[in-house]
Design a protein around this nucleic acid. Structure first.
Lengths: 344, 344
DNA sequence: TTGTAGGCGTTATCAT
DNA sequence: ATGATAACGCCTACAA
């Protein structure tokens, strides 16, 4: 970077003022075709690359937004990223991606660093801070849009509650009474909503809650497998597993398989997200679809409006849709006997 | 960002010169403890956030590197990203991530935009341009490190050839004669090397190559499934599938399953990457391990040395290790009859 | 149609 | 120990 060509170098070579070069480069119609052509040719020959940094200092906008995610190794997050990037490109924005690794400290660092970079706005998904962003009342601060944090005024969320409700209702209708929830406290808000949807649905059907049937995971394959194994070791194991996401569901499927249990004959499984992978499981995974790309696009759309100064934006909630494939089936005959919750 | 506090504002409030504030903020020992404390307190109170943009303009370095990837929705790439970020943090660098979506035009755009941002260096993985970067002899340009492009002088690669060789050798020893390669031309260099490893190994064992047994995919689940289906429709289908990556292998597994074929009894399958997912397949996937995180870390390490001005760096090749799980087994009895390549 | 001058927020080089 | 001044590369009135 030491000696990269500047606008002044070109000005000197073209025997014009720097401002003329600046204008010609940005296709200002006031500059004559001749000089414009000369300047274009020269800047090509001299290998000129504009310095966005310098430009930003004077225009006071970076045309860049920050996107804070938990980690790139989460396929659902990947869809969100793609959606944000698509929409950003549409508006002429670049995206600066930072991973928080589900760590509140790193998330705060990430946001601070984005402020220092003077990005025009910030999108945070899977936040550990959540409404902490509300405290930032400084009007000079960048607007922040949150994904899956419906209490925050500028947010786009999936209807996690309804998604969980539909999933569990589906299981109840199939006759299941002992339904487990494989949680992921790492995704705070989404997890709360799905847990609540599960709880409420069980209550609605007069099924007593069993604390043993909620077991913690971390949204990964390994976490899902471990959680399922703990469940299977219970004196009275569940007949159906509702998992925080598809990855945990695949992990659970693996545990079931290793335990010699057939799906769905011996145990039903439902995931969440509807990753492409869900359709490729053996058997194909019943799951709840949430549209990550759409979430991302809408978040970027909202952020753009916020950047433009629009104030009257309100939270958006996108639907979650149950997709029934082949990991759910009738409750196995004989289940629910003994000290079953209902029979008891 | 309109009215964010600047160093000048603090200087005015503290009754000192801007340069004093600048020094105090960076803990310059020449500034007295008193004034330093005052300035620190003030900058806290006034909500000061330094402008990296402005700082960069004068220091001529951004402490940021660019990372161009194919897409975040590739789990192997995710590992590389994590490795790069880890190592970058170690050296005090941030990472600007851009997706090229396996499109040469977008890749060129990405690199140009990184130049405009004056990142200190660039890492490209899964490049469509490859040795095109060699043309950039401009000494003022940023150093570029390529991942999995071993012909480029500044590169970190997996030993794709050896990995493919080991995989195919494993199949041959199990008695397979009709071994298919599910390719991914999108990852140009890696694909070439794995195809060649496959071809050479077959030749070494005096197995005639059959063009029908190389079929194109795109590295995705859908691509792998479609490729496998085409293979199964052959008059004399293969008894083993060597796939460009694990995702294609999972897709192939799905196709096999739908076709009513057992794995490995009727057909063996090998993947590449050894994603966490590989161990969670049913049955667990035999695959070739390549360490994405390590690839990323080493790439960032090499880039750092390049940025420091070291010139005597040479390409690095990391090992690929066959991991035998349960999708590979002896060739099915009766296979290879009819117009089999060997028998013919 | 083009040139001049000032400034964006920061650091660095002299001074003092 | 601190201040004044001049950059860094670019843009934008305002002049001409």
């Amino acid at each position: 970077m030491h000696g990269s060509t500047t606008i002044k170098d070109i000005a000197r070579a073209a025997q014009v003022a720097p401002s003329t070069v600046s204008r010609a480069l940005r296709a200002d119609r006031r500059i004559s075709g001749e000089t414009t052509a000369l300047i274009l040719r020269l800047s090509e020959e001299m290998g000129y690359t504009p310095s966005l940094t310098a430009r930003h200092l004077v225009t006071r906008q970076t045309n860049t937004i920050g996107l804070v995610i938990s980690s790139v190794s989460d396929l659902f997050v990947a869809d969100v990223v793609i959606g944000v990037e698509q929409e950003a490109r549409l508006h002429g924005y670049s995206v600066f991606l930072i991973s928080s690794y589900r760590n509140a400290g790193l998330e705060a660092d990430a946001v601070r660093s984005l402020h220092e970079r003077r990005t025009d706005g910030i999108i945070v998904t899977g936040s550990s801070i959540d409404e902490g962003y509300l405290a930032r009342t400084d009007p000079t601060a960048q607007p922040v849009v949150l994904i899956n944090c419906p209490n925050y005024p500028y947010s786009i969320s999936t209807d996690n509650l309804a998604g969980a409700r539909d999933a569990v209702t589906h299981l109840v209708r199939l006759g299941h009474r002992r339904i487990a929830y494989l949680a992921n406290p790492g995704s705070h808000q989404a997890n709360l909503a799905r847990a609540e949807g599960c709880r409420a649905t069980l209550a609605f059907h007069a099924l007593a809650p069993d604390p043993d049937l909620t077991v913690m995971g971390d949204g990964t394959l390994a976490g899902g497998k471990a959680a399922a194994q703990r469940l299977l070791a219970l004196p009275q194991p569940p007949t159906a597993l509702f998992c925080f996401n598809d990855m945990m569901a695949v992990g659970a499927l693996c545990a079931l398989h290793e335990a010699g249990l057939a799906v769905p004959a011996d145990c039903s499984v439902i995931g969440f997200d509807d990753l492409e992978l869900a359709a490729y499981c053996c058997p194909p995974l019943t799951t709840v679809l949430q549209d990550g790309e759409q979430l991302g696009r809408q978040a970027m759309g909202m952020l753009f409006r916020l950047i433009q100064g629009e104030e009257n934006v309100s939270p958006v909630v996108l639907p979650a849709t149950l997709v029934v494939r082949e990991t759910t089936g009738p409750v196995p005959a004989g289940a629910g006997r003994g000290k079953g919750v209902i029979a008891a």
